[in-house]
Amino acid sequence: NQASVVANQLIPINTALTLVMMRSEVVTPVGIPAEDIPRLVGMQVNRAVPLGTTLMPDMVKGYA
């Protein structure tokens, strides 16, 4: 099963992502693939992302 990117903490709206904010986990539904974590660093979320939430492509500005 493919691992997805999951929020390791509450990520406030418009926050630029850092490695410490994300972890990989096998979840359903599948979100952004864990191998894209390096690409996500520095990108901003367009909404608040609660701890444990799977990051979906539409949550990250410029990802989709």
Rank of each mutant, 00 (worst) to 15 (best):
D36G: 09
M21H: 05
V6F: 09
R39N: 05
M43L: 13
M59R: 04
V41T: 08
I13P: 04
M21P: 00
V27K: 06
Q44N: 06
M22I: 12
T28V: 11
V30G: 04
E25K: 03
G42T: 12
L40S: 01
G52Y: 09
V6T: 14
N46L: 13
V41L: 12
M22T: 03
V5G: 04
P33D: 10
Q9K: 07
G62F: 08
I32N: 01
I32M: 05
V60N: 00
V60W: 01
Q9P: 01
V30F: 12
K61A: 06
A16S: 09
N14E: 06
I11K: 00
P50L: 14
V45M: 14
N8W: 13
N1G: 15
V60M: 13
G52K: 08
E35A: 07
V27P: 03
V30I: 14
R47N: 05
P33H: 12
M59Q: 05
T53L: 11
K61S: 11
M43S: 04
N14I: 03
P50W: 15
N14A: 06
Q9W: 11
T28G: 06
P57A: 14
A3E: 15
G31E: 02
A7P: 02
T15S: 05
N46V: 12
I13W: 04
P33L: 09
V49A: 06
K61F: 05
L51M: 15
L19Y: 14
R39Y: 13
V26P: 13
T53Q: 14
V49L: 09
N8H: 07
P12K: 03
V45L: 09
Q9G: 07
L10W: 08
A7Q: 01
G42E: 03
A16T: 07
V6R: 04
T28L: 04
A64V: 12
Q44W: 13
S24D: 06
V45R: 00
R39H: 08
A48S: 06
M43C: 07
G52L: 08
V20L: 12
M43E: 04
V41Y: 11
P38K: 07
I11E: 00
D58H: 12
I37Y: 02
T15P: 01
D58L: 08
I37W: 02
Q9N: 08
L51Q: 15
L40R: 00
S24A: 10
G62C: 15
M56G: 08
N14H: 07
A64M: 14
Q2F: 13
A48N: 14
V20K: 14
V41H: 09
A34D: 13
L55E: 00
L51E: 14
M59H: 12
D36I: 15
T53W: 14
I13T: 11
L51A: 12
N46A: 04
R23P: 00
L17P: 01
K61D: 04
A64N: 07
G31V: 03
G52F: 09
A7R: 01
D36T: 11
R39E: 03
A48M: 14
Y63M: 14
S24Y: 07
G52T: 13
V41W: 10
S4C: 03
M21T: 04
A48W: 03
Y63P: 03
N14M: 04
S24F: 07
E25D: 14
Q2C: 14
A7W: 01
V5D: 00
Y63V: 03
L40C: 03
V45C: 03
N1F: 08
D36A: 03
I13H: 10
A3I: 10
I13S: 08
V60R: 01
D36L: 10
V6C: 02
A3D: 14
I11G: 00
Y63E: 03
T28C: 13
A64Y: 02
G62A: 07
L51D: 10
K61H: 10
T53N: 08
V26E: 15
V27W: 04
A34K: 06
P57W: 07
V49N: 01
V45K: 00
